[in-house]
Write a protein that binds this DNA or RNA. Structure first.
Lengths: 177, 177, 177, 177
DNA sequence: TTTT
DNA sequence: TTTT
């Protein structure tokens, strides 16, 4: 139930392999960095300048499992989720904010590669009988942890590494849920 | 032209009156804080807990002018835009990142109030013959400045005030465009 | 599960009160006619001509119940669903096709009236403690019948009445499900 | 300008090569049939049954030119447009209605094939230096004819061929615009 | 950090 | 009529 609409639709490519973690309950949580490209005309040179926007995506549940298994660096993917801004503390004790696209039970994912993302990546462990272009409209099974926040996930590429906690340890040990 | 899809669709209410600024070229730039609500069931209490997500919206061009004129604190609005993350420097010299929904020439806005957002706000200067429920699908006229970044805008409600530059002055004097 | 994306997002007003029916299993099925307006410039006169597009919407499950209870002629509503084209037989034995927006367990609805659609309609049976601006993101409960087709529903406003079967009777008696 | 939202987002495959026509002004008009797949569980057998939904898409302007040039039978494509229902006369003099997804100056298209749609089709005239995965967010140039209706386009696969006018002739000669 |  |  909700009062309002909060929807994000992206088609882009993964900047690196997805990072998979698990909640204490055994639910998968996957972090992606997704690039969407747009070129624009520079006002001075009049030239077409490419511009890349990077998006931090967090997936939960069944979609997360599929994403962790089949997506790789370079994979093209369609994603539907919602915006969520998390607050965290920098080393200096100041608040920081990170906005992510949350893909949970209400979200959607569709792989758009006809032949796998990157051959190299697939050799490093991707399954053989890879289901191409499958889409998962995540339905009944699990309860995403998304509300509890603090699941961690390293917003690399957005925050200076010096100012970020090490979320992996937090994720396994410290986070109170 | 773009390679990828980057789309955000929101329906929510303004947390405060919009802030309007102008570029040196005279183009309007409007900042909004938009709340979308979603309630979820708490795992412990089993109760329905309301959860509000706040979104920073930046509008350009004709849509910005309309938004600045007719939207007020509390107004309900439909917005279609794209995600953009800006980098800025905190007072401590460290990088900060702010993610905004940019509504430019390709975006869309629709006012959803049948009688204006808040009566009080309207008395403070909103025009009488207010066009209700009008939608503006911003088309040909201007070139949004969105690419040049640095137009400022105070991301209040998201960043600690101590760590933010004063964008109003920057906007008028210092920003190099 | 799906391979592909099929998504429709509408904000419009109901042309008349919703029609509610029930499947033999007791699941609600609601038909709406929704108007979305767009004005365009006539090439000859140069004048702004209003243009209304009518959409046939079919809702299932919990969303249908809410829509049937709270929406009325004139109500403004946000709808997210998918396109589906049904084939039916005209009186002349020829095939006809009707395209509908199906709002089922994956869809979404949000009422956008601050004070109900039309006062008159509300007097004709709408409940008092009407939940305003509530949104229902239909989740786990029921299995929509949407696939079995043939639930009927009178696509008035789109098909000439002379060429349409009487779906109400069909709905109660003849449809094999 | 519009009052309301009317948006369709599809990812699917072309059932056949696109059909390109030109208005008397020389503007391209392209018709596509797009398949989106969804599988559902049959209530009786409990089996996963594939279900294909076919969509009639009409494109105008620059997007139409690109689609006509680069899309082929089997191509996977992302499309954003709006719903429009056209009325036409069957041979029996009765009204018929066809719902189409109109992709005009406000729409969007993105090719999602990494290596072209179908090799066979490409041999039949597709250009060599094919720009893969390019997206066109159609902006300033032309005025779509979409409002004047009657541009024709053969809704094959939806209407019985016996009941349809021959739109190609109409398109070139008879349509009054 | 991706993609063409 | 497409796709896996």
């Amino acid at each position: 139930m909700a009062r309002g609409v909060n929807k994000v639709i992206l088609i882009g490519n993964l900047g690196q392999d997805p990072e998979t973690r698990y909640t204490p309950n055994g639910n998968a949580v996957v972090n992606l960095n997704l690039a969407t490209d747009e070129s624009y005309k520079d006002r001075q040179s009049g030239q077409l300048v490419p511009k890349t926007e990077w998006h931090r995506v967090v997936m939960f549940g069944k979609i997360a499992e599929v994403a962790g298994q089949y997506l790789r660096k370079g994979s093209k993917v369609y994603i539907e989720g919602k915006l969520q801004t998390r607050k965290w503390q920098g080393q200096d004790g100041q608040d920081r904010y990170t906005t992510e696209i949350v893909v949970d039970i209400n979200g959607q994912m569709q792989m758009l590669d006809s032949r796998g993302g990157s051959e190299g990546a697939m050799n490093q462990g991707a399954p053989q009988g890879r289901p191409q272009n499958q889409q998962y409209n995540q339905q009944p099974p699990q309860q995403p942890q998304s509300q509890s926040g603090g699941y961690g996930g390293n917003p690399q590429g957005q925050q200076p590494s010096g100012g970020m906690p090490e979320p992996v340890d937090d994720f396994d040990d410290d986070i109170p849920f």
